[in-house]
Design a protein around this nucleic acid. Structure first.
Ligand SMILES: NC(=O)c1ccc[n+]([C@@H]2O[C@H](COP(=O)([O-])OP(=O)(O)OC[C@H]3O[C@@H](n4cnc5c(N)ncnc54)[C@H](O)[C@@H]3O)[C@@H](O)[C@H]2O)c1
Ligand SMILES: NC(=O)c1ccc[n+]([C@@H]2O[C@H](COP(=O)([O-])OP(=O)(O)OC[C@H]3O[C@@H](n4cnc5c(N)ncnc54)[C@H](O)[C@@H]3O)[C@@H](O)[C@H]2O)c1
Lengths: 241, 241
DNA sequence: CCATCTTTGTGCACGCGTTCACAAAGACAT
DNA sequence: ATGTCTTTGTGAACGCGTGCACAAAGATGG
């Protein structure tokens, strides 16, 4: 059993830096919006503003894909949408299974943003026998017993875990054993996976704690600025026995 | 109106690198689990394995907080839990509002992981008049008209946006104007906020697209390995007119 | 055809984050 | 007290990501 590697293979895939890959979906979203407004071309400056990034960074990102711009004009919106989609693998269909159809899993199943980008919910899976057969978002929930068959029959390579934390590792192992090689984990646990399997995590609690850290810092600075006297420094609190 | 800065102030807050701050919640979770099992001390090696990170990185992270370990023994679990909690600002209560009580917003409201770490759902807010007064997760949903009063009355500084993308920027502006300085955004949009406001985003669609990229790459490598003949190289596809 | 103007593509420098490797610190046994 | 053994804390090297700044490319107008 490999030790739980975080995510990010750190290997530069096909010469495209991981940081760039993470921004491509952002560019794609901005470009899709432009496309819907029938804007023919866009400059790196405009697109960068729409995506909320530095324009030099955006140009460098695109340079990894190839020279798709025209100097003095900008980028052809439609063409760029196609190129990024192709690079991200969105020109093909990705069947996805969601495991754990509770509050969150049901919300994910109902989420329209899935289908819009080539992702298709192939099955909803839950361990609760009472859930089996019940339709969620128009799809009948299937029991965990069927997991391996579902993965195999549908050629699923991407799985979403929305079970309680305690069940996540076990579910993960079954998914991987059945052939899944990419996992999006919503459960607050570190998943151990063999090499070759990618795991990305979404953790609400972590995000909030990061915000709280900065929030506290802001409050501290404010207090320091208003009451500019007797800063007691960094003395650590009492050390327990 | 400031241009939509992504997130991460890039400024090193109180000497603690942003990358370290992002890992502290991970360590805290692992430590809490150890604490519940009444484990008194833990070595950097063990804790690093539990958190899924390199042990040298973990030690360096902790060194930013101070010298809380004992050489030859390890770290006192309880003490470390306290120190990290304090550093993250989790020793105080953070009232949070959730705006947009649809599929996702309701799931978030029902999520137990909120309260467990000092975050308290102070109010649920939705624009739909039909939702007003309805209880979700034991809390009555309030109408958007009340937003400013709710923020002010409860001293809320952290807001969660779970509205459709089209409404997110407007909701964001109202939150900020009312005094919110940290925002967790689930809507797939780039939010523009003034300096001093932190935004973090959770985007399911982006995570899936990143997974799809690597998945495609794996499939490509596999095909290349099996059929080792006539690699047509990196010739770009047909250029549209 | 030439001049001008816009915008791309990228060389380069810098800073942050990661990891190795090891000296110093302390526990523990004798 | 002394020696051994474990584990921390950190100096140093390295690699990745970011952003500046500019030359080259091409459009556009005369
Ligand atoms: N609800 C949220 O907003 C939210 C936010 C962040 C993280 N999370 C995390 O997401 C996960 C799900 O949250 P939730 O609120 O939907 O919980 P939930 O209890 O509502 O749903 C969990 C579902 O998983 C099913 N399940 C349990 N064990 C299973 C197994 N072995 N195989 C398949 N299915 C199994 C249960 O039957 C249940 O339907 C939890 O780990 C939670 O911490 C939730
Ligand atoms: N459901 C998911 O799993 C999921 C996943 C990722 C991202 N998202 C994003 O999260 C957001 C919410 O998703 P959802 O599935 O819950 O959508 P939803 O349509 O079920 O819920 C949206 C809610 O927001 C309310 N609303 C609309 N405008 C508002 C305003 N101006 N002020 C306050 N409330 C307002 C609506 O009344 C509705 O109750 C969307 O932006 C979606 O793209 C959802």
């Amino acid at each position: 059993m490999a030790t739980g590697r975080n995510h990010r293979p750190a290997t530069r895939s096909r010469g495209i830096p991981e940081a760039t890959v993470a921004r491509l979906p952002l560019y794609l979203r901005a470009l899709t919006a432009l496309s819907e407004r029938s804007v023919p071309t866009v400059s790196s400056e405009e697109l960068a503003a729409a995506a909320g990034v530095n324009s030099a960074k955006l140009r460098k990102d695109f340079s990894y894909l190839g020279s798709y711009g025209t100097r003095g004009v900008g980028y052809d919106v439609e063409y760029l949408v196609y190129q990024i989609s192709r690079e991200l693998g969105l020109t093909q269909d990705w069947p996805v299974v969601i495991v754990g159809i509770g509050n969150l899993g049901a919300a994910l199943a109902n989420y329209g943003g899935f289908a819009s980008r080539g992702f298709r919910v192939a099955a909803l899976i839950d361990a609760d026998p009472a859930m089996a057969g019940k339709p969620v978002a128009g799809i009948a929930v299937q029991h965990t017993d069927e997991l391996e068959r579902i993965i195999s029959d549908n050629g699923v390579s991407i799985g979403v875990i929305a079970t309680p934390a305690g069940a996540a590792q076990q579910v993960c192992e079954r998914l991987v054993a059945a052939g899944v090689t990419s996992i999006l984990n919503f459960a607050p646990t570190v998943l151990s996976v063999p090499d070759g399997v990618d795991v990305r995590k979404v953790d609400l609690s972590i995000e909030l704690q990061i915000l709280a850290f900065h929030e506290q810092r802001k409050a501290g600075e404010e207090a320091e600025a208003s009451a500019r006297k007797g800063p007691d420094g960094d003395m650590p609190a009492v050390m327990p026995a």
